[in-house]
């Protein structure tokens, strides 16, 4: 079964980063991705640009509305995601616990509705 981890972190944590800082950040996530791949459960991941670059669009209400910014302002923002393939929620929780974002932010775990 496919599960998506939505990673919510405080954007202030990643403010004023030097290229070296980013390299260190990527190394930590790279190790996690390595474990997922070695275990054969990795499907996909991405790291998103900061939330202040978000653009939100809706056609709801009949007209095309484009908004500069996220659809909701929260302290912890969606910063990336993982998709993994594991048998059940217990296994998904075991992997979410190891996700770097869980230690400093929050990881929302959602099962795929497509099975």
């Amino acid at each position: 079964m496919r599960y998506t981890f939505l990673l919510y972190t405080d954007p202030a944590d990643l403010a004023d980063m030097t290229p070296d800082d980013w390299a260190a950040e990527k190394q930590v996530y790279g190790a996690y991705i390595g474990s997922l791949k070695e275990a054969g459960v990795f499907v996909d991941t991405d790291w998103l640009q900061p939330v202040d670059t978000a653009t939100t669009l809706t056609l709801k209400g009949g007209s095309r509305q484009v908004q500069d910014g996220p659809f909701a302002e929260t302290k912890e923002m969606l910063g990336g995601y993982f998709v993994i393939s594991v048998p059940d929620l217990d296994a998904a929780l075991a992997w979410a616990e190891k996700c770097p974002a869980a230690k400093t932010g929050k990881v929302e775990i959602r099962a795929s509705a497509m099975g």
Binding site: D10, M17, E25, V28, T104, G105
Partner: peptide, 10 residues
């Protein structure tokens, strides 16, 4: 941070 698998910046 690398040893603990946690964001170095955070």
């Amino acid at each position: 941070a690398r040893l603990f698998m946690v964001s170095p910046a955070a």
